[in-house]
Write a protein that binds this DNA or RNA. Structure first.
Lengths: 164, 164
DNA sequence: CGTTATTTTCAGATTTTAATGAAATTGTGA
DNA sequence: TCACAATTTCATTAAAATCTGAAAATAACG
């Protein structure tokens, strides 16, 4: 079945992305699930332990890629992935900005600050390199923040203008 | 010293990016080195083995983030990192496209193809999801390809228009 | 309350990834 | 061709990440 293939392969691709295999597989599974799934269904489908399923489901919720659904008269939690591609993109961009880019900017600023008095000598070039990297990433964040708040159609229109 | 701090911390950040710590550290070291460095200098500075230094230096060369310099009358290889931020960005974008995005697109197309006859039933939504993801990533690649071939100034101008 | 379904945690086991160091290979100059 | 410097490989070891399974905690229901 194509869906099983997708789930398995998306998991492998995930590892190359620096995401753990199970988390990527669960994401793929939920993204292609017609209905929200509960922990036991995920466990069974992927043949993984409860602890593993639980941890990764909650991590996905932490990434805002998956939300918890409750059905009345049923005390289990069900999990549903965001399926809208633009929303997925926005979510991942926000999270990566927060987890990966902002800490880097802080480091760069700190290192630039610490060397700002070294007008001459080897520290000069280092200071400038830190500033250049900071400036670039900060500008990138600004662009990302703008795109993140755009509607899909507006972003598309903007990008289309670039493509000519 | 600020540079040592930068090298160490860039290494830690690297792991969150899915890059191995040593590779990120070597990259940070070379990016802030006033002169190209040889394997022994890298080994000594980071206190790592020859094999480790060698492997990661060559991986960085494979990423096109570092190039090999030879000095006449000296048979050692020296390593120099690209320092221009825009060029680093272009290089990383190209490599990530090739290593991470394109394989994903192939998977999505394959899965879409295999289910294109399922006009009704549960396969319908799956097929559409694969197509949506493919379309989005493919469009992203087009945009990236355009940006990648731009001069820094042009890209800046384009982005500035977005920011208003 | 007590019972039961469900979620959460976490110590230990397993798997994966990365690093070491020494041996093998390559290449240069005398 | 030989000696030597440097690079490369790779079996082994070490470290980090991930997974399991069962126990503990939580919370819904009568």
């Amino acid at each position: 079945m194509a869906r099983d293939e997708f789930v398995a392969q998306w998991g492998s691709l995930g590892t190359q992305w620096g995401i753990n295999r199970t988390m990527a597989q669960i994401h793929a599974l939920l993204m292609t699930a017609p209905e929200p799934m509960c922990t036991d269904e995920v466990m069974e489908k992927l043949e993984i332990s409860r602890g593993n399923a639980h941890t990764n489901l909650k991590d996905l919720v932490g990434w805002n890629l998956v939300r918890i659904i409750t059905k009345k008269g049923d005390r289990k939690e069900y999990f549903e992935a965001e399926k809208d591609v633009w929303k997925i993109f926005i979510t991942i961009s926000k999270e990566r900005k927060r987890r990966e880019i902002e800490p880097a900017i802080h480091l760069l600023r700190d290192c630039a600050d610490r060397t700002k008095d070294e007008a001459a000598g080897p520290g000069r070039a280092f200071h400038q390199q830190m500033k250049d990297l900071d400036e670039f990433l900060s500008f990138g964040v600004k662009v990302a923040d703008t795109v993140i708040t755009m509607k899909h159609a507006s972003a598309l229109q903007w990008a289309m203008r670039l493509l000519g």
